[in-house]
Design a protein around this nucleic acid. Structure first.
Length: 682
DNA sequence: GGATAGCCTG
DNA sequence: CAGGCTATCC
């Protein structure tokens, strides 16, 4: 299975945090701005992902502030099932040609095609207009060449008639499109209102809000009603939703009605309020009359539709969830604790998170508290460093131990998911799906088109959200390891989502899953895992790699990339060892030298190694790795002291020693995803 | 000749 | 961290 497309079939390992209506990947305002050029290089994705206005960026930024930080989606679920359908590939393919050439036709059900459709719909009209212009010019010349005046008049009359007709046709089409958009928007607004009533209303309750009476729980029929052509309450009431108006007034109080919507266009940059839900559209009235406006129109339309679809799915899933008594509480009652927890980690990067989170209606509690307590309980048992100066290969590898998540790896936030349905995991826009799937495509440049890499670079500001299966191997993992230590009680089956989603009851998710799983390659999560594995094995065989990266579809490309990673890890390791050994060799006093040849956890060398292989510092560096590092350090030192370093091959002897000190990798690494996540949130 | 390690470079 | 290159091993 070395076909190039296989590379893209691997499951993604990360996703972007949920954004209600946006996907613009520049949560860091100082970087990754989408430039017009990058837009042009992403004919399908970027117009959707980056609705071209500063207000959108700002809105996106605002929306992203702490928005459902607990969200995660299990893309690892039903892996076999999905792998079985891998032929349903996303447009992205290993070669750039394919990426460019096939993206359009292969993007299938995703909204990226909408722009094309719109373009296709528009092109003939423009062509006909151009033809008319051309004809007019030709005919004018002909007329000057002594054609009969009468005939020319007739012809001109016919042309004018044609032009009028085509103009009217265009006008009609524009009107139809407008109508469609407005209907969609109306439905969306209604959905938003209901969502707000259900979720935002709860927040209001705490503040003494009085919307409760009319805040009945929304039911499926209401959702269905929203999508029935014949029965659109908004339309039938003569409600014409504003095109791009801020909904601040009505949405922010959770009690809005259509009449309160401002009719005039408002600059969303200025109008955005933290607690509102707004339409991600930057159209200005009349703007879509122009070609550029047409594009914006298409984008807005796509966005609105995507949002509505995402919300409906979310609603349906939630309804399912509520039938399960075990999930109903956390599914419906937002609690602040976990949000605070997440925000604490988020605030560092995005200081404006707080105001946004408080206002967001769909914030639900992720079961972190419970999980945190579990992790804390397990924690003590996991701290089992195995000091063994003699350094025989360990029959039972030390288990990874968790440190309190002091600093979270920005690209690997930890999102627990014991109760996946309780999370707003399904409430994300198609844009999010895209951003996620794209951001988790293979790292290998060989496999990527330039434009894709471009997108990735823009998208990298997302703190990608690893997928459930990858992120949360915890249930089985804990069962296996924590369980042995008397843990395991009170575990919640994190596979619920997997089962639930794998049931295939929601075709949308099948589609999404297919797309997301249709990728192959190594994700940042895999890199992180590889680095942690380096604590145990410096020279993993390819079979070892296959064992510990079960979620990776191995081919030559992936294997060599992984091997290269470990090669790089070793390189870094040995460079540091040599550096500190030389430093020690320069030490005059033997006592100081002796100290510098130690690798205490408070030493600079330890800090550097930990920083490199365990950047997020959420993994207890195995004692054995410390010991092996000391061995390497001393070997380098003695070699330098004895002048062996003049031999060009002097390091090889050291490598030989170190390579014998590999120890087995803990079983927790056998599961997909980052093993650290198993124990995090402690 | 393929796979891998290591070195160098960007 | 990846790519290119060489050396080495099987």
């Amino acid at each position: 299975m070395d076909s190039p497309s296989d590379r893209f079939h691997q499951q993604p390992s990360q996703m972007c945090p949920f954004e209600l209506y946006h996907s613009l990947p520049d949560s860091n305002p100082s970087s990754h701005r989408f430039s017009p050029s990058s837009l042009s290089s992403h004919p399908l994705f970027s117009p959707l992902m980056h609705p071209n206005s500063a207000s959108q960026r700002w809105g996106s930024f605002r929306q992203r502030q702490g928005l459902f930080p607990g969200l995660l989606v299990d893309d690892d679920i039903s892996e076999e099932d999905v792998f079985g359908k891998r032929e349903f590939a996303l447009g992205a393919t290993p070669s750039s040609q394919r990426c460019h050439g096939e993206r359009g036709q292969s993007s299938g059900p995703v909204p990226g095609n909408w722009g094309q459709d719109f373009g296709r719909a528009k092109r003939p009209r423009m062509d006909s207009a151009a033809r008319n212009e051309e004809e007019t010019g030709r005919e004018g010349k002909r007329g000057r060449k002594s054609r009969a005046l009468v005939r020319m008049g007739e012809r001109k009359g016919a042309e004018q008639g044609n032009r009028r007709e085509s103009r009217e046709g265009r006008k009609r089409q524009r009107q139809e499109l407008k109508l469609q958009l407005e209907e969609t928007r109306g439905k969306l607004l209604e959905l938003q209102r209901k969502v707000w009533r259900v979720y935002g209303g709860q927040a209001d309750d705490e503040k003494g809000g009085e919307d409760e009476q009319e805040n009945g729980p929304i039911n499926l029929d209401e959702v269905a009603e929203m999508f029935s052509d014949s029965d659109d309450p908004l339309v039938s009431n003569g409600f014409s939703p504003p095109r791009c108006s801020s909904q601040k007034n009505n949405e922010s109080n959770g009690n809005g009605n259509a009449e309160m919507f401002p009719e005039t266009s408002v600059d969303l940059d200025l109008e955005l309020n933290g607690d509102q839900v707004w339409l991600g559209c930057s159209l200005v009235r009349g703007e879509w009359e122009s070609a550029e406006g047409g594009q914006k129109f298409a984008q807005a339309l796509k966005q609105e539709l995507a949002n509505v679809v995402a919300q409906v799915i979310d609603r349906v899933v939630r309804l399912y969830a509520e039938t399960d008594p075990s999930t109903v509480t956390s599914a419906t009652v937002p609690q602040e604790t976990s949000m605070t927890l997440d925000l604490n980690s988020d605030r560092r990067l995005r200081p404006q998170a707080v105001e946004q989170v408080e206002a967001l209606p769909l914030v639900t509690k992720s079961p972190q508290d419970k999980r945190a307590s579990i992790a804390q309980n397990v924690h003590k048992d996991l701290l089992l460093p195995q000091a063994n100066p003699s350094l025989p290969p360990l029959p039972h590898p030390p288990l990874p131990a968790l440190l309190p998540p002091r600093s979270k790896d920005h690209f690997l936030p930890s999102y627990p998911s014991e109760n996946p349905v309780a999370l707003p995991l399904l409430h994300y826009t198609m844009q999010n799906l895209f951003a996620r799937s794209l951001s988790s495509l293979p790292l290998h440049k060989d496999c990527l088109s330039e434009s894709f890499m471009d997108f990735r670079s823009h998208n990298s500001a997302f703190p990608p959200l690893p997928l459930l299966g990858q992120l949360d191997p915890s249930p089985s993992d804990r069962a296996r390891e924590g369980g042995m230590r008397g843990g395991g009680a009170g575990m919640v089956d994190g596979g619920d989502a997997a089962l639930y989603l794998a049931a295939g009851s929601i075709s949308f998710y099948e589609i999404v899953q297919k797309n997301l799983h249709s990728q192959e390659g190594l994700s940042p999560c895999h890199l992180k895992k590889a680095k942690l594995m380096f604590f145990y094995t410096r020279y993993p065989s390819s079979s070892t790699l296959k064992t510990y990266f079960p979620d990776v579809k191995f081919n030559r490309c992936v294997t060599s990339q992984l091997i290269k990673w470990f090669s790089n890890f070793r390189e870094f390791f040995y460079i540091q060892m040599e550096r500190f050994a030389r430093q020690a060799a320069r030490e005059g006093l033997t006592s100081a030298r002796e100290r510098s040849l130690r690798l205490g956890r408070d030493t600079e060398l330890y800090r550097i190694l930990n920083m490199h292989y365990n950047k997020s510092n959420d993994y207890q560096v195995p004692e054995r790795f410390v010991e092996i590092s000391e061995v390497a350090l001393r070997e380098f030192f003695t070699a330098i002291q004895s002048g062996r370093d003049t031999d060009p091959c002097w390091k090889k002897a050291i490598y030989k020693i170190i390579c014998k000190l590999d120890s087995p990798v803990p079983d927790s690494f056998r599961l997909p995803g980052c093993p650290t996540d198993t124990y995090r949130m402690g």
